[in-house]
Design a protein around this nucleic acid. Structure first.
Lengths: 145, 145
DNA sequence: CTGGCTGCAAAACTTTTGCAGATTG
DNA sequence: CAATCTGCAAAAGTTTTGCAGCCAG
């Protein structure tokens, strides 16, 4: 379902800052930090406060329209999330990020760990890091990290 | 290998603050934030600066003696890590955390995602959340989140 | 119109840095 | 004894909060 509909249905307004933040995230292939979002919007003409960015991201996270992910250096970034439970894979070169969905393999893993640890698993957080197709090409000749 | 040996070999000193931080993490079943570590040590008599805690954790992280993990609310916490690549499962009730190691199931998952996304996977971050055995007992009668 | 939302300013935190003096090997 | 490490103070950076005025519905 469309985010405009979701916001409306829950009684939230479609304010300018919210529109701009979501539009930006829609076009972004990369997870963006609040600061990055703010700067990006400033450059794109519109004068939106950093505070509004924070508040918008909080709201969108609560509504599960947006997900917080980290890179390997633990820098935070927000991405639009399609509905449902998803994971992300992010490129270590260009930071492009993509969602992928869970599958049997995760269930298998969960079962194994439950058996090993006697914990009862309720949730998980999984993120992969690597090279996106573009950066694989660019790196073919050069050396890697 | 023992952390004392590792520190010595790399030319680092076994100072009081470092000893205390590591000792604390050794007994902790829970991932601790820098603040928690600091407070915990203050209570245990010794007057170690918060700054030293940060610097010690940085060093230990660099040496891979310690790992930074997050809970589902994205609060950071440090845990001692055994050598090698590991993942953590943390209890949502008491925050107790345990390591578990990778296995075929993760490789399978990685291969699937590589096929699905055309990314080349180089690293991953995986954390499970749930109930530890103790908290499962305590929750048997009550309701769950 | 009116309640929710923004933007500002400022507070509250968290983390990093510089430097003099203490400490380890 | 020398280089490293600590602790303080203070800076830098991030996130939250309070409040007056604005704006979407």
């Amino acid at each position: 379902m469309d985010w405009k509909v979701i916001l409306s249905q829950k009684g939230y307004r479609l304010s300018e800052p919210r529109k701009r933040v979501i539009e930006l995230l829609e076009t972004a292939e990369v997870a963006l930090s609040p600061q990055q979002i703010h700067q990006n919007l400033q450059q794109k003409d519109c004068d939106i406060g950093l505070v509004s960015v924070y508040r918008t991201l909080d709201l969108l996270t609560k509504l599960e329209l947006v997900t917080l992910v980290y890179d390997l250096q633990h820098n935070p970034g927000y991405m639009l999330s399609t509905t449902g439970h998803h994971h992300h894979i992010v490129c270590q070169e260009c930071h492009k990020a993509l969602e992928f969905s869970g599958s049997d393999d995760i269930d298998q893993l969960v079962e194994r760990v439950e058996a090993e640890t006697s914990f009862q698993v309720r949730d998980h957080f999984l993120q992969l890091f690597g090279l996106c197709p573009d950066c694989q090409l660019n790196n073919d000749t050069g050396d890697q990290l």
